[in-house]
Amino acid sequence: MSETTASDTTTPDQTTDLTPSPARRRGRLAALAGRLHDQRGMATAEYAVGTVAAVALVTALINVFRNKEFVQLLLDLVKAIFQAVMAAKGLGI
């Protein structure tokens, strides 16, 4: 009668062969495809958040530029810059 050792009682999952079976490869590919699909969904959510942020920024800018005091302050600033540049060039107005 032969004695059985621990190495004789290994199951197919415990073999030292590191090459995955075709079924296991398909399973891994399916899992990878699932993760890639999820990533596309996250990108879509990120685009949605970016779009909402852009619309909010544009809305704020429209409200700011509708304010007559702000527009006048901006025009005065532009005039002051042009006058400073012209004076530096010796072309005072």
Score class of each variant (00 low, 15 high):
residue 91 L to H: 14
residue 79 K to W: 12
residue 1 M to H: 09
residue 58 V to E: 05
residue 81 I to R: 05
residue 18 L to Q: 15
residue 29 L to Y: 14
residue 8 D to L: 00
residue 35 R to V: 07
residue 72 Q to S: 05
residue 93 I to F: 07
residue 23 A to W: 11
residue 13 D to F: 15
residue 93 I to Q: 14
residue 9 T to I: 11
residue 21 S to G: 14
residue 4 T to N: 13
residue 62 I to A: 11
residue 18 L to V: 15
residue 18 L to P: 14
residue 51 T to C: 04
residue 39 Q to C: 05
residue 44 T to S: 14
residue 22 P to L: 10
residue 25 R to G: 05
residue 16 T to M: 09
residue 31 A to H: 08
residue 7 S to Q: 15
residue 13 D to T: 09
residue 54 A to L: 12
residue 50 G to P: 02
residue 20 P to T: 07
residue 45 A to P: 00
residue 2 S to L: 11
residue 11 T to N: 13
residue 67 N to D: 11
residue 35 R to H: 06
residue 10 T to I: 13
residue 41 G to M: 03
residue 69 E to P: 01
residue 79 K to V: 13
residue 47 Y to I: 03
residue 23 A to P: 01
residue 4 T to P: 04
residue 5 T to W: 08
residue 47 Y to W: 02
residue 2 S to K: 05
residue 74 L to M: 06
residue 3 E to K: 08
residue 37 H to D: 09
residue 78 V to P: 02
residue 77 L to E: 09
residue 84 A to C: 02
residue 40 R to Y: 11
residue 8 D to R: 05
residue 84 A to F: 00
residue 19 T to P: 02
residue 69 E to R: 02
residue 5 T to P: 09
residue 90 G to F: 00
residue 43 A to M: 14
residue 93 I to R: 15
residue 28 R to Q: 14
residue 84 A to H: 03
residue 68 K to E: 09
residue 88 A to D: 05
residue 32 L to I: 06
residue 16 T to S: 10
residue 30 A to T: 03
residue 78 V to L: 06
residue 25 R to W: 12
residue 64 V to R: 03
residue 68 K to C: 00
residue 43 A to P: 00
residue 67 N to C: 01
residue 58 V to D: 10
residue 62 I to H: 07
residue 9 T to G: 14
residue 4 T to G: 12
residue 85 V to E: 08
residue 58 V to W: 08
residue 44 T to W: 12
residue 89 K to F: 14
residue 51 T to V: 01
residue 31 A to T: 04
residue 3 E to F: 07
residue 16 T to W: 14
residue 66 R to P: 03
residue 23 A to K: 10
residue 72 Q to N: 06
residue 11 T to W: 05
residue 57 L to D: 06
residue 4 T to H: 08
residue 87 A to M: 00
residue 6 A to R: 15
residue 38 D to S: 03
residue 75 L to T: 03
residue 22 P to C: 02
residue 39 Q to I: 13
residue 68 K to V: 11
residue 27 G to T: 03
residue 29 L to D: 15
residue 88 A to L: 09
residue 85 V to M: 04
residue 70 F to A: 08
residue 66 R to M: 01
residue 74 L to Q: 04
residue 89 K to Y: 01
residue 17 D to G: 04
residue 23 A to E: 12
residue 15 T to Q: 13
residue 50 G to N: 13
residue 17 D to S: 09
residue 6 A to S: 13
residue 91 L to E: 14
residue 2 S to P: 15
residue 26 R to K: 05
residue 74 L to C: 02
residue 5 T to A: 06
residue 51 T to H: 03
residue 87 A to C: 00
residue 13 D to A: 13
residue 71 V to Q: 07
residue 88 A to R: 06
residue 46 E to T: 08
residue 5 T to E: 11
residue 65 F to L: 05
residue 83 Q to K: 13
residue 56 A to D: 04
residue 48 A to S: 04
residue 55 V to C: 04
residue 38 D to A: 10
residue 9 T to S: 15
residue 52 V to A: 14
residue 28 R to W: 07
residue 20 P to C: 02
residue 37 H to K: 08
residue 53 A to S: 01
residue 20 P to H: 07
residue 19 T to A: 08
residue 65 F to A: 01
residue 57 L to A: 11
residue 51 T to P: 02
residue 48 A to R: 03
residue 87 A to W: 00
residue 71 V to E: 03
residue 46 E to L: 15
residue 46 E to V: 13
residue 2 S to T: 08
residue 5 T to V: 05
residue 22 P to S: 02
